[in-house]
């Protein structure tokens, strides 16, 4: 008997629809196998590593619509040598980190003295931030310090973060900040 998506949703609420079954003592395996297939149907599986502590547990991410949809299941990677499929509460909840209505869809800007955010476009945000960075850099740039030594830096801009970025991003990020002349580059490892 085919199991509809609606029926499957009932499984997830903790009570199984009995429409698939005729009575007591029946083996549920065939119907359940179909339910299983439904849950994972047309999903792609990718591996990831937990975004929280540095134990570095492996996870499997099931993404719907052959990778074009959203993640529908995230659980521990049983092949991973460190966690062997296990996760703590945070790792187990990882899907809610990504699939969350509270994630702002667009950049936001708060003007001086404003009481609220304003949604803005990416291009506008880049252009406005760039203007401010350049203005501050140009105003503060120091070629020589009080002792006359070459320093080629700006002291009035600060960067804090980020231990949650990937290695590649961290490296690019420090390169950008140093190219801008920042010396105040700090992150989570300092606290």
């Amino acid at each position: 008997m085919p199991v509809s998506r609606r029926t499957f949703l009932k499984f997830t609420a903790g009570a199984v629809s009995c429409s698939a079954f005729t009575g007591l003592g029946i083996s549920l395996a065939p119907a359940m196998a179909q339910a299983e297939i439904l849950k994972f149907q047309k999903t792609t599986i990718t591996t990831t590593v937990c975004c929280y502590c540095a134990v570095g547990c492996g996870l499997l991410v099931h993404t719907a619509d052959e990778g074009k949809g959203r993640s529908v299941n995230v659980e521990g990677d049983p092949d991973h040598p460190v966690n062997e499929g296990a996760l703590c509460a945070k790792g187990a909840a990882m899907r809610q980190m990504a699939e969350n209505k509270a994630r702002p869809p667009k950049p936001m800007y708060r003007a001086a003295g404003a009481k609220e955010w304003k949604e803005v476009e990416w291009d506008w945000a880049y252009a406005e931030i760039a203007k401010r960075v350049k203005a501050e850099r140009d105003a503060s740039f120091t070629l020589k310090n009080s002792k006359g030594e070459t320093v080629n830096r700006t002291e009035t801009m600060v960067s804090l973060g980020s231990a949650a970025l990937d290695n590649e991003e961290c490296w690019s990020y420090q390169a950008i900040q140093r190219a801008l002349g920042l010396v105040h580059i700090e992150h989570q490892a300092r606290i």
Binding site: Y52, S159, L165, N167, I185, E186
Partner: peptide, 20 residues
């Protein structure tokens, strides 16, 4: 026991005032 998924890596990549 490092507390962030990549705080080892971010330190390796020199996101600190004293190291490159």
């Amino acid at each position: 026991l490092r507390g962030e998924s990549n705080v080892q890596g971010s330190t390796d990549q020199g996101l600190l005032a004293n190291i490159l």
